[in-house]
Amino acid sequence: MQPKLQRVEAHPTVVKRVSRRHEDEAHGGAWKVAFADFCLALMCLFLVLWLLASRNSERMQQLLKTAGADLIEEGQGLTSSLASGSRGSMIDRNPVPAHGEAPVKGKSNQSSDTDLPDADPRLSKSRYESAGEMRELAKLIERIAAQVGLASNLHSAITPQGLRLMLHDTDTQGMFERGSPYPSARMRELLRKLGPLFARMDNQLIIVGHTDASPYSDKSPGAFSNSALSSHRAMAARHQLMEGGMPADTVMQVSGMADRAPLDPARPQAAINRRIELMVLTSSQARQLSGMFGLPREGLSLDATPPNPEGLLQRLQQQLAPYRAASAPAP
């Protein structure tokens, strides 16, 4: 007898699909890469902002030093809160040595006498008095200006007071940033090259700043004006000369005349009116100027005044006529 087969009912097979997509994303590495990129970009942004802030602080210190704030971080007196800023910098301030030259620690940026072109034995004397000696000095300074590309920005004149050196703007090249006492790179290079030359002279120096007649919008008594700008530029020139090696006692006077003495009165806003003048004084003129502002002395005569200042002014204007014509705008 065959066994009785029991009927087995077939049940449907249920397949349950469980999505693990969210768990895979949470445990994957894609979000970590994105987060690392975000952190790197954020760190680069902070680094750039820090460098910009550091550069602005150092530039403010330079401007305040050129304006006469010599106590900034010099270990004397107080430190200006406007220029305190960051105390560190990742940018090396030492000059880059030439190829094959070993860097020297503590070496300053001062120029040396070897930077002077074609040292003339006749210029080895320490004082210049006569017109011929002043003329030789002017030629040497003109060669130095030509080396730095400022031959067209320098004009010299021999006067009874000494050698008058006028470093003026042109329509294509300025000595300072417009409206700023910060000198251009070529102006800084020229003044630092003149530092060693003035260091080996006994002649006293006067530095005078001049601007054009373009006024500032704010004309209140306490606002920044052309008088302040010309004074700050004159102080900036003194600072750059001292950076080149000129002793501080070489300069007898630093002043700013704003737009009160233009070289081109017919065009008060002309580029030639924006200038720095360096007056190399003769010994007699230096004594007279010192007596004028120092302790009054008996017997001081004013007969040394040129008998015909109008004629001297006319001759100087004739000498400057080619420069004014070259800088005049084309019709």
Rank of each mutant, 00 (worst) to 15 (best):
Gly100Cys: 08
Val208Ile: 14
Pro215Cys: 03
Lys16Leu: 06
Ala286Asp: 07
Leu302Gln: 10
Glu243Cys: 06
Asp118Asn: 14
Arg233His: 03
Gly29Tyr: 00
Thr170Trp: 01
Ser227Pro: 01
Leu205Met: 04
Gly75Leu: 01
Gln110Ala: 15
Pro97Glu: 11
Val208Gly: 10
Leu82Cys: 08
Asn226His: 02
Pro268Trp: 00
Gly174Met: 10
His239Thr: 05
Ile144Glu: 13
Ser124Val: 05
Gln314Trp: 12
Leu154Phe: 10
Pro307Thr: 04
Leu278Gly: 07
His155Met: 13
Gly132Arg: 04
Asp264Met: 03
Arg260Pro: 00
Pro215His: 00
Val208Met: 11
Asp120Thr: 08
Leu191Thr: 06
Ile158Tyr: 08
Pro196Glu: 05
Leu123Phe: 10
Thr159Asn: 10
Ala228Cys: 03
Lys139Val: 14
Glu310Leu: 15
Gly28Pro: 03
Leu51Trp: 12
Gln318Thr: 02
Asn226Met: 01
Ala237Thr: 15
Met235Gln: 11
Arg275Tyr: 08
Ala321Leu: 05
Ala145Val: 09
Lys65Ile: 09
Glu177Met: 06
Met90Val: 01
Ser89Phe: 06
Leu313Tyr: 12
Val15Tyr: 02
Asp37Arg: 07
Ala261Gly: 00
Leu302Gly: 12
Asp303Met: 07
Asp115Arg: 04
His210Ile: 07
His27Arg: 12
Lys4Phe: 08
Leu194Ile: 13
Leu194His: 15
Arg87Asp: 07
Pro306Ile: 13
Glu129Ala: 03
Asp259Asn: 06
Ser112Gln: 08
Asp212Ser: 14
Lys139Asn: 15
Leu316Ala: 08
Leu320Gln: 01
Thr159His: 03
Asp212Ala: 04
Glu73Asn: 00
Leu197Ala: 06
Val251Gln: 02
Leu51Tyr: 08
Gln173Ile: 00
Pro103Leu: 15
Arg287Tyr: 09
Ala69Pro: 00
Gly195Arg: 11
Leu300Glu: 11
Gly75Pro: 01
Ile158Phe: 06
Gln110Gly: 15
Ser214Tyr: 07
Arg324Asp: 03
Thr282Pro: 02
Pro103Met: 13
Lys65Asp: 08
Val96Glu: 09
Arg7Asn: 07
Arg7Phe: 10
Arg93Phe: 11
Ala67Thr: 05
Ser111Cys: 14
Leu163Gly: 14
Ala157Asn: 14
Val48His: 09
Gly222Asn: 15
Ala10Thr: 15
Ala270Asp: 09
Ser156Cys: 09
Ala41Glu: 08
Leu191Ile: 06
Arg274Trp: 01
Leu278Tyr: 15
Arg87Lys: 08
Arg17Pro: 03
Arg164Gly: 01
His232Arg: 11
Leu78Tyr: 12
Ser126Phe: 03
Gly245Tyr: 06
Asp264Asn: 09
Ser156Phe: 10
Ala138Asp: 12
Ser230Glu: 01
Gln318Gly: 00
His232Val: 04
Ala321Thr: 10
Ala119Gly: 05
Ala53Gln: 09
Glu243His: 04
Asp218Gln: 15
Arg287Phe: 06
Gly311Ala: 13
